[in-house]
């Protein structure tokens, strides 16, 4: 895939809008008028291994993430990743009170914890993807989300389903809820078919909307 700087800039902007929609959904879901900070999107063509190292960032912590597989013109996977500790804080914010307390590690997760994290992932990822699809006039079908925990590779490879050396288009946005000390990553990796489709739609948008 050969994206020039204008295409890359547009891709970043499209995902920025998607992440904004996702952040608005998360804020409404948590119902606390919390301000959710978003980083500048990072766009790269990487292998799964490189992607996992980027998210893990040298941290020797257990991560927790929701992965969503999608098909169609945006075929690939998107995921929401945070440390295990932060995932518990998120459950507390969503459900209030005691649900996030007295949970030491993954073994203490209840069905309700898992369900809460899955629902947050489902809402946030679909909000972002829908925004991208609507902006570029393309279509996707998403599967039901899955929850994984462990190292980042396990989460983003759907527990080893995807080959580690596969090249993907990776778009990452970091998010934070500063008042609550909560940080995480929203990532999207698109396979080669989707990369070609995306390139076509980006070019079409630039030609028809920007006249460049």
């Amino acid at each position: 895939m050969t994206l020039d700087s204008l295409h890359k800039d547009l891709l970043g902007e499209v995902f920025n809008l998607g992440a904004g929609r996702a952040a608005a959904s998360l804020s409404e879901l948590l119902g606390n008028d919390l301000e959710i900070g978003l980083s500048v999107p990072r766009t790269d063509v990487l292998t799964m291994t490189e992607m996992a190292e980027l998210i893990q960032d040298g941290k020797d912590e257990e991560f927790c993430g929701v992965s969503l597989n999608h098909k169609g013109e945006l075929s690939g996977d998107s995921f929401l990743v945070y440390t295990h500790k932060e995932s518990m804080r998120l459950v507390q914010l969503l459900m209030g009170g005691g649900l996030g307390q007295e949970v030491g590690d993954r073994a203490d997760f209840t069905d309700m914890h898992e369900d809460a994290l899955l629902e947050v992932g489902n809402l946030v990822l679909n909000a972002c993807l829908s925004s991208v699809a609507n902006f570029l006039s393309l279509e996707f079908e998403s599967d039901v989300p899955h929850l994984y925990s462990g190292d980042c590779m396990k989460i983003i490879s759907n527990d080893g389903v995807f080959p580690v050396d596969q090249l993907v288009l990776y778009v990452q946005i970091a998010f934070s809820i500063e008042d609550e000390g909560l940080n995480g990553y929203m990532g999207l990796c698109l396979n080669m078919d989707a990369m070609a489709s995306l390139e076509t739609h980006l070019k079409h948008y630039i030609d028809t909307q920007l006249g460049a």
């Binding site: 489902n122 946030v124 679909n126």
Partner: peptide, 8 residues
């Protein structure tokens, strides 16, 4: 009732 709010 869905988060998948694609126009299509």
């Amino acid at each position: 009732c869905t988060a998948n709010i694609q126009d299509s």
